[in-house]
């Protein structure tokens, strides 16, 4: 019987391990370049004074001499950026995140903890309703809110924005609460808390991760919404960042050659800052919330 050479097999193993490592790094580097390139593209063009037609590969090579704050100046020197666009987008985003999250919290808790007759068919029913494409609710909403004279009003947008996240976030919260042992609330009840007290003192602190994710999702939706805003907002005073960005980016009309591309990029970056702030505040919770929400089920 021929014994395998110890050194030979070790060298072979080592070699295949190195090859697989190199391949892994190569794949990850390609993926990372792919993931980061568009972001770099926005960032770099935002500090260049450049039109779309003038962007070439060579203009994307970092060059300190080309850097200018012209675009940011241009966007920020227009007071309506703050007084209309940013203000309105923040109003819609924050109020929807606030209202929607509180509602989702109650919903998720009720769905997770309370048994009521017909609970399972009820959840099936909700899942079926969720299949109705949200975008298409815009049409009936449009007529409903027209009837109520809520078109082109803050309330008329805040209501559907808040409602938009309640079912999805509610189920997210429910799944998360399902993973918290019921003993904890019962201990609080015996310890002298009311049901509400057990909810606020035990459950809420424990579901922070999912609330972080919920805040982010519930904010980004309305903050960057184009569909409802496009359909509901007719006057100048309610215009949002998303509507403005869309008009800044509209290339199709002029063929795009003359579009002031740096301004678009700078606008995009400025629009992203509030999201970045929320992301940073809740960062700790978002990743764990994301993975938990997805793996469950």
């Amino acid at each position: 019987m021929k014994l395998p050479s110890f050194f030979g097999s070790r060298r072979k193993r080592l070699k295949s391990r190195i090859v697989s490592r190199i391949l892994s790094h190569f794949a990850l580097i390609v993926a990372t370049l792919f993931a980061l390139f568009p972001i770099y593209f926005i960032f770099w063009t935002s500090i260049l004074k450049i039109q779309l037609a003038a962007i070439s590969l060579s203009s994307l090579i970092p060059n300190l001499a080309l850097i200018t704050l012209y675009n940011y100046n241009y966007v920020l020197s227009d007071p309506t950026f703050f007084t209309i666009y940013l203000k309105n987008s923040l109003i819609f985003g924050l109020s929807a995140a606030g209202v929607g999250l509180v509602l989702a919290l109650f919903t998720g808790y009720a769905l997770s903890r309370f048994t009521f007759p017909g609970r399972k068919p009820f959840i099936y029913f909700i899942i079926a309703l969720m299949q109705f494409p949200g975008t298409m609710l815009v049409i009936p909403y449009f007529f409903m809110f027209k009837e109520l004279n809520l078109i082109n009003t803050y309330l008329g947008l805040i209501i559907p924005y808040s409602a938009g996240s309640i079912v999805f976030t509610g189920i997210l919260v429910k799944n998360y609460i399902d993973s918290i042992p019921e003993d904890l609330e019962e201990a609080a009840l015996v310890d002298g808390e009311t049901k509400t007290g057990a909810f606020t003192k035990v459950i809420i602190p424990l579901i922070k991760p999912i609330l972080g994710l919920g805040v982010l999702l519930a904010f980004i939706g309305p903050y960057t919404d184009f569909i409802l805003a496009r359909a509901f907002i007719t006057g100048n005073s309610l215009q949002t960042l998303a509507l403005r960005l869309y008009s800044v980016s509209s290339i199709s009309s002029s063929g795009g050659a003359a579009i002031d591309y740096g301004v678009f990029s700078a606008f995009s970056f400025l629009m992203g800052i509030p999201i970045l702030i929320i992301y940073l505040i809740f960062q700790k919770y978002i990743i764990s919330g994301l993975t938990l929400g997805g793996v469950k089920g």
Binding site: A35, L36, P38, I39, F41, I42, L52, I220, Y223, T224, D225, F226, A242, L245, Y246, S249, I251, G256, Y261, F264, S265, S268, M271, G272, I275, Y279
Partner: peptide
Amino acid sequence: FPWAMPAFITILTWSN
């Protein structure tokens, strides 16, 4: 990163 960026903005960028 691509997930963390708002889709509305990045789609417009991709469009360009």
